[in-house]
Amino acid sequence: MLPGFPDAAPLAGLLGGVLIGLAAALMLLGAGRIAGVSGIAARAFGISGDGTPRSGAWAFVLGLPIGAMLIAWGPGGIQASFVGYVPLIVAGLLVGIGTRIGSGCTSGHGVCGVSRLSQRSLVATVTFMAAGIATVAIMNAFGLEVLS
């Protein structure tokens, strides 16, 4: 579909991205908040004291798997392969620590902040992208095959 990249799904990606953008726009214009998943999750689970009202945070977090389930039930279904439990847990810890210290993740910084041209979010996004790319390159160099 995309010349040179037989595995890419540009149309599904763009449509998915537009849905994510609409979701974040609804959060912004409807509830007056940033749709940053790490911050909202921290609020829902009582780790962060400020942010969207707690019931609203819970409802947002609950919506994420509901939305994925709706797509999984659809014609295309979903195929997904995950890394093993040990790398999942190591990664989860790093993601949890890093998103709290760095005030956001792919959604808050990468979508909401970048689209607002926030200097902090642009720097954070370049940083976590570079770190992700470097991590995958290093794992590949050492032959760490973690995807099952």
């Binding site: 790398p87 959604s107 910084h109 720097v123 976590f128 770190a131 991590t135 995958v136």
Partner: peptide, 19 residues
């Protein structure tokens, strides 16, 4: 900000999952 983003990106790279 930068250190936190770097830690997050490292975890993202390991499992290819973000929040």
């Amino acid at each position: 900000l930068i250190g936190g983003a770097a830690l997050f990106g490292t975890g993202w790279g390991i499992a290819s999952l973000c929040p």
